[in-house]
Structures are given as structure tokens and as C-alpha cells.
Amino acid sequence: MKILIPFFAVIALVVIALVGAQASHALFGIWIPYAAVLIFVFGFIFKVLKWGRSPVPFRIPTTAGQMKSFAPWIKQNKLDNPSSSLGVLGRMLLEVLAFRSLFRNTKTQLYPGTKLTYGSEKFLWLGGLAFHWSFLIIFVRHFRFFMQDVPYPIQIVEHLDSFLQIGAPLLYITDVVLLGAVTFLFLRRVMMPQIKYISLPADYFPLLLIFGIGATGVLMRYFAKVPVVSVKELVMGLLTFSPVIPQGISSLFYAHLFLVSTLLAYFPLSKLMHMGGVFLSPTRNMANNNREVRHINPWNYPVHVHTYEEYEDDFREKMKKAGLPVEKE
């Protein structure tokens, strides 16, 4: 059920778009994308602000190496246990761009005769990295549809992505990598018992949705081609707030656009917000300099304590008998 519900949901989305676009190009080509972008942008900002409303009362980095020591002869691990903002920046960059923490991943195995081993396990890191980077590159590549006079850097990305020069139109490496990585991430969720056990429909849905987006994209580029000039005209119409529906664009494109719209609208409501959340994780984005720099808790309040005077009152006689100094005789 956990897999079937999202599976049929994605199928339904494709069908809705294929049928619906025939009925109303404007709905699927203009209004739904606009609504999706609005939900995405405001939903995202709303969520981040909602997180931001809660303070960070304590400085609680998870330290992952030797701290900055009082002694110069003990070498600090400045990236995994940063004590300065620069170090934190480095740690965050490593985390966000290279998935530092996942790189540490190990696989625990229990052998008969009470032996445990922890082997290096890099597949999740590799799969995750492949997925996110190819997704990013594909996104950036799409900017050639989003901009009049496509800036040179975007052309470079596009050029590099197709540098193998396979077929015509040229095969994008990231198309293959993305679909492969999504498949891998999906399969590991289905095949690894523990991961399957904790997976929710909300875990399968985005994977299947992104697979659908990738598949419709690939179909349009390599197989059932769409007139790209018209496609860009439509997209540019949206971006310049003068929407048009050019003739001759097939339903396949509307299916692609609808799936993307769904992803955008779904994003702020879901775990996909890890994209914003990773920057706000207090165990990663803080320096481990607690003993050196004061950290203020905005809601710190006075508490009821058991004072020394009360303590002495409780034990004065015993203290005196034991020869301990007391404040009041």
C-alpha cells in the first residue's frame, strides 16, 4: 500500500495532464504553473520563517573531530569540529555540496559467533550525490528555456553535460544519471528491509514523481519530440507575465509541466524541505566554541534553586560535627 498509493497517484497525475491539457491548454500551461510557483515560493519562505521563529537556545554542534585545544601541539580538525565562522562555512559547504556526513556511512554486519563489523558503505552517498547534482545541473540547463539571450555560463553547463556527443540531439549525461539514481534510491527503499520498514508513502511519492518528470523530459527530447521554439515561447510568456499558448505543443509537454508543477506545490509541505532545513540544522551550522564565546538563550529565565543557605540549614549540625566550615554558627 505504501508504494501503490504514490504509484497510482503519479499515474493519475500523468493521465490528468494528458486528458486535461486537451480540454484546456490555458489551465495546464498557464494557471496551474503559476499557482504552483506561488505555492512553492511562499510555502518555502513561510516554512523557513516558521522555523526561524523558534530560537536556537543552545549551541549544540555535533563535533566530529578533535576540538580546538588550549594547546597548539594538539591539532584541531577545523572542518569537522570548527571553532570559527569560517570553519562552519567550510563544514556547511562540505555538507551541502559533498554530503560529508553521508560519506562517513558504514554498514554494520553481525556474523555468527558474536562478531560485528562496520564496513565502509558509500553507495548511499554516491547515489544521493549523483541524484542531487544531476538534478541541479538539469535545473540549471533548463534555464535556456527560461531566459532570453541565454547567459554564457548556462551554455557552458549545457555544453559540458552533452560533451560525449552521442546521438542527435546530443545525449545529456545527467539525464541518464538522474534516472539511474532515482531508480537506485527507489530500489534501495524497496529492497532493504529496514529502509522499507520506515518508508512512508511520502518517501516513494517524490521519487516516483521525479522519475515521471525525468521520463517525460527524456521522451520529449529524444523520442516524441516537441517544437522547442514554441515551448520556450510558452515558458517565456509565463516568465514575462504575458502568457501565451503557442500552437502545436503536444500533451506530453503538458504532462511534464504538470508533474513539475505538482513537485513545486508539494515541496513546501513535505520532507523535500530538507533543502532549506539543512542550512538551519543547529548541530551543523554552529561553531564549537562554547567555552570561548558566550551563547545567549533568548528565553532563559530564572529558576528555583536549592541555595547554599538552605543546604547549610539542612546539614549545619552534621557539617559542624565533621569539621566543615559553615556560614552561620
Partner: peptide, 19 residues
């Protein structure tokens, strides 16, 4: 976030959409 995702919007600001 706005810088990245808003880029296509303000980059095209004032440009006519001419295929």
C-alpha cells in the same frame, strides 16, 4: 532562495517575449 529561483523572472524583466 529568492536569488536563485527569482533569477529567471527579473532577468527577463522588461524583455518582450518574441519567438
Amino acid at each position: 532562495f529568492v536569488a536563485v529561483f527569482g533569477f529567471p523572472f527579473y532577468y527577463n524583466l522588461g524583455k518582450a517575449n518574441v519567438a
